[in-house]
Design a protein around this nucleic acid. Structure first.
Lengths: 158, 158
DNA sequence: CAAACAGTTTAGCCTTGGCTAACAATTATC
DNA sequence: GATAATTGTTAGCCAAGGCTAAACTGTTTG
């Protein structure tokens, strides 16, 4: 292993010259991102299904496909996976329901999404941009950062 | 298509009851995230290779594997892809170099990473958390948000 | 300088998350 | 109530990004 630790003389105000983090820490960063990616899509589906039920009264595969800009076949396959994981129940050709656990995930996911979205708006980001960024960011924000974002947002609206 | 547009009576302070966005906008959000995912890994590799060269003098596959917590085989396969895309040059069994284009990507990627990282710190997030979150967030932050983050950070340090 | 070790590559496997095309069921319409 | 339109499912394809095991190259060292 040639990647030994090296002391790097750090100036105090180095905006673009941080040292490399220690190998283990660096590795943990990437692992965290990879893990997030695994659950991300699942959470997005569950969150969307929850939203559709709340706002439309039901969640149908066609709506999900439209909103995700994905084929119905893809949605169908995904629903089976959600079912396998005990997150939704569905009878063939009927609309979907969230299980207890699915509800819980939807709720958590939605809360996180909202915190990020409102934070971005409070920061001064335009609504349409904020929505896009929030969708991507929500799965990569730790609880610590999340609560800081929330506090910031509340202070902002005084 | 059953997913018609619906007016939703919005209270002014609804932190957890936003209406669904219009279908096309919603679809665009998810598409943006999917697109980001495609380039994300590539950028991470290129960025890391650039960092290794800057801080270590060279980038070797084994170091990348260690820092990414991934097998050497995976790195090897990835390097071929980077090569195919004209981002790195490499001779078998030798260390890597970035092409002109690779350099450019590394630079942009690194700048973005730094803005997000410093922003999180300025917000009050602990360093180790900030590093993890930045790694995940950097690919999902629009230019608009990025420049707002930068401005915020600068104001903070006065 | 030969052997051992460290680093790299290749082969082959797996899962995920897309797709299209063909078929099946439900719902709407005449 | 028969037919058309919409919706849902299945089969089979593909690329990406992981992995392990085995083979190969380069370097170090006895």
């Amino acid at each position: 292993m040639s990647d030994y630790q090296q002391r790097h003389p750090s100036s105090l105000n180095n905006l673009s010259d941080d040292a490399l983090p220690p190998v283990e820490q660096h590795a943990r960063q990437y692992e965290t991102v990879r893990n997030a990616h695994e659950t991300e899509l699942i959470e997005d589906y569950v969150e969307l299904i929850g939203d559709l039920i709340r706002h439309r009264g039901e969640a149908r595969a066609a709506d999900i496909a439209n909103r995700m800009a994905v084929s119905q076949a893809t949605v169908s396959k995904m629903i089976r996976r959600l079912n396998d994981q005990g997150l939704v129940t569905n009878k063939p050709y009927r609309s979907l329901f969230l299980t207890e656990e699915g509800e819980k995930m939807a709720k958590v996911s939605r809360a996180r999404h909202d915190v990020v979205l409102h934070f971005l708006r409070a920061l001064g980001v335009a609504d349409s941009t904020a929505r896009i960024d929030a969708e991507g960011m929500e799965h990569h924000v730790s609880d610590e950062t999340l609560s800081i974002m929330q506090r910031f947002t509340e202070q902002q609206r005084r």
